[in-house]
Design a binder for these strands. Sequence first.
DNA 1: CATTCGTCCTGATAGC
DNA 2: TGCTATCAGGACGAAT
Length: 322
Amino acid sequence: MPELPEVEVVRRGLVNWVRGRTIISVDVLDPRSVRRHLLGPEDFAGNLEGATVLDVVRRGKFLWMPLVEAQAAPASASGQNTQPAVAVMAHLGMSGQLLVEDAAEPDENHLKVRLRLSPSNGMPNELRFVDQRIFGGLFVTSLVPTDDGGPGGLAEEPLPMIAEEASHIARDPLDPHFSFDAFYRRLHLRKTGLKRALLDQGLVSGIGNIYADEALWKARLHYARPTDTLRKAEALRLIEAVREVMLDALAAGGTSFDSLYVNVNGVSGYFDRSLNAYGREGQECKRCAGVGLVSLMKREQFMNRSSYTCPVCQPRPRNGRW
DNA sequence: CATTCGTCCTGATAGC
DNA sequence: TGCTATCAGGACGAAT
């Protein structure tokens, strides 16, 4: 399940393989993977073919590659670099992968879209989008100016533009432009549960179900805690916990940047790590065990998904008692 | 306006 | 053995 660290690993890996390369041709093998491109698969392919990839940029879990048309590339006549107008957007959803591979490699079982790239120093010349469950997809989006410092998302050279389809996504807690004060102000105004807020990509981005549970556990907060009762120190503790969990995962997933396969399999990178909360139903809470208490992790349905908590160190809030 | 809910998908697994 | 039911969950648009 790709969350921010997994998507960032993909971005870092991908940029080395595709920056500066031209898309020669496009095969859409399953139109459902481009359903967010409303003008259809042919239009999608037409937008990409002949265009050159300038960069790989991320905002939250959205990843995009700004494109320049081949004709527009020699912009030296004006002495200015042509600003890219469009980008190809990728969202991995639940099971999406972006793989850089040689054309001789057999098609993956769930290969959905193939981009053939211009030859470059013997690098593999296909970028493939593989997606078993089709929650993810590719589509073309326009680029619009940002008000400040670019898209963020740890991009190495942020452009002062953001993909329109990602412009409603908030900055993530690792983004240098993330504002804790702005986050806390908005959080405090909400009338909802804490985990629901954490998963709202318009409030703070990059957090999915697994990291939400891990961060809440680390901060000793319950998922149903009303957001308008959260004190500033608690919110700060939570954001710090999110950062720590994400940085740990990033470090764990960042070992295969130079692999031929861009590692986008969040599961493989993640589940090797020791989880403190997610998936630990019935097992002892690692923190309580350390202080001599016995507390078994609990699994509950919340928002149609599983939430894992320790009943001792993450007590459920009592009505109106905050 | 903010918030919540239903929908999109497939494969692994449990239960009969 | 082979069938069906259940579960996993990110993001969007509809409903409240």
